[in-house]
Amino acid sequence: MIDSFTLSTGFGAWNAVFWVIAFVIACIIGWLIWSRGEKTYDSSGGATAPFLSGNKEPEKAAVHIRAGNLYWGYTDALSGYYRFIKPFHTGNLSDYFLAYLFVTALVLIVVVVLK
């Protein structure tokens, strides 16, 4: 029965049902560990408040990290690549046509040469 849910890739296999069962078991184990935790703990007492070198914590909405601040390290590390690739995306329709005609010509050459 369970074998019928196994995706055969020809060189390996994948059974999502097993994966789901394992995931559920892991969740149950996690819940069991969590449920054995300290029940008398009071989260309103300030123990969970961030410590910012003694400074007052800013409003939550003020510290939300916006999309523009994410992955700056990645884009900075690949800045050379982006300097190369972005200028192709001009938004100019004439450039779109040129790219299309360029590929058409290139594919024609390749297909004719390697016929």
């Binding site: 192709f88 779109y96 058409t104 024609l108």
Partner: peptide, 23 residues
């Protein structure tokens, strides 16, 4: 062969293959 290339690139452009993906 010319017809093949015309079909191929027109359809590849319509499906958004790079470098004809700008639209």
């Amino acid at each position: 062969i010319i017809a093949f290339v015309l079909f191929f690139t027109a359809l590849a452009m319509k499906c958004g293959a790079v470098p004809m993906h700008f639209w």
